[in-house]
Amino acid sequence: MESGGIEIGTPAFRRSALALAAAGFSTFAVLYAVQPLLPVFAEVFGVTPAASSLSLSLATGLLAVAMLVVSPLSEVWGRKPVMLASLLASALLTLVAACMPTWSSFLAVRALAGLAMSGVPAVAMAYLAEEMHGRAIGLAMGLLVSGNSLGGMTGRLLSGVLTDHYGWRVALAVLGLLALAAALAFWRFLPASSRFLARPLPWRAVPGTFLGHWRDAGLPWLYAEAFLLMGGFVTLYNYVGFRLLAPPYSLSQSAVAAIFVVYLAGTASSTLVGHAAGLLGRRRVLWLAIAVGLAGIALTAAESLGLIVAGIVVATIGFFGAHSVASGWVGRRALHHRAQASSTYLCLYYLGSSVAGTAGGWFFAHAGWHGVVGFVGALYLAAFLVALRLARLPEPA
């Protein structure tokens, strides 16, 4: 490796890209594997749809909070050790979760797994920023994001198909074993940090670096976007399975899980919308992407299965596009301590998933799918108004 960092085309780049893509794939596969299984948990454990969503919400909620602590800890302990510990612990806890006999014990293990998973999203970007040459960071970051997205999609799809044929416990056990293999590949292939300097962390100064961003005119609004957009998006996917498994659709668990393949459209849209934001400006593109998401949400209220699936596709495109613009905007507004600004955005992002994802179950229980559409639509309408507010703000000097 050259003194300037890891270059594209070198063995070190290939090993780093493979290891971090595997880490992202594993983390998001085990995190979201339970989402298509919420109707199964409700039936097997005799809980409500809202209670079944806790298997995802507790994990994402603890992940959100833990990232704020794990990111500074990696400054002391090192990037690779923190990520490796995260991968091993989350894989082992997924295997343990597959064996839990009661709902409460299952939720406890899932919560611990969410805590363990926080190491990868909190630290991977910092590793790339330190170790990669400037010319290689963009490609390496794109591969990391692709691994995250493909992991989330594959975890959902695989768990649904395996549950259909072998049961949910086997599905989670298989995903736990795959995550363990990914952790070993990460340990074997990721080069040790060569540009990282461990330093004692002035913990008293940490809260100030986070709180300073809340005084900015725009960052709190972007944090609100993270909460609203992710909260609505996860709620939509949490409860659509309940609707499609029931009459008149009566789809199989595998068919419902296959809907998550539309994540590929979302992954593509994030790149295209991000490029459009660079050409036309974030102010013009953010509200438009949210409006696309709102149109998709409205489509899912139809009775036609084709329109429901089309609505999910459109909503997914809108969400990924809006998220790519908002998350990129954070880095442009934060002139100092950008890592803390990004981790705060991600914290609100996953808290939205946790809080709104479970709250949506109340609307589903009391008003059915149209209640979910109304709740998610309200979240996106609020996000749309926030986007209009952001469009009127001047950029920081």
Rank of each mutant, 00 (worst) to 15 (best):
A91F: 10
T94I: 05
A23G: 15
L112H: 08
R110Q: 11
R110C: 12
G114R: 06
A33L: 14
A21P: 08
A111D: 08
L88Q: 02
V120R: 07
P101H: 02
L92K: 10
E75C: 01
A122K: 07
V76R: 15
A29M: 10
S55A: 15
W77M: 09
S71A: 10
L92F: 04
L38W: 13
Y32N: 07
C99R: 11
L38F: 11
A66R: 05
G119R: 00
A113K: 09
T48R: 14
E75H: 02
M83L: 00
A98Q: 02
Q35V: 11
S55H: 03
S57N: 14
T102F: 01
A19F: 04
A66M: 11
T48N: 08
L95Q: 07
R110E: 07
L54W: 14
L92I: 15
W103K: 12
P72Y: 01
R79C: 02
G114N: 12
G119H: 00
V34P: 07
A19D: 03
T48F: 01
V40W: 10
T60Q: 14
V82A: 04
L93Y: 09
S26R: 09
V109K: 06
S71M: 10
A22P: 04
S74W: 01
L84H: 03
L87S: 09
F25A: 13
V82Y: 02
A50R: 12
A98W: 01
T48Y: 08
M100E: 12
L92H: 05
L54M: 14
A108K: 11
V69R: 05
F45T: 08
L88V: 15
S105T: 14
L31N: 13
L68C: 01
L56T: 12
A50Q: 12
G24C: 05
L95D: 05
S26K: 03
F41H: 07
L18Q: 05
G78V: 00
V34D: 15
S86I: 01
S26Q: 07
A108Q: 12
V69I: 05
L95G: 15
T60N: 11
A21I: 01
L62W: 00
V96D: 06
A59P: 10
L73N: 06
G114T: 09
A64D: 10
L92P: 06
A111M: 13
R110T: 11
W77C: 08
A51P: 09
F45W: 13
V34F: 09
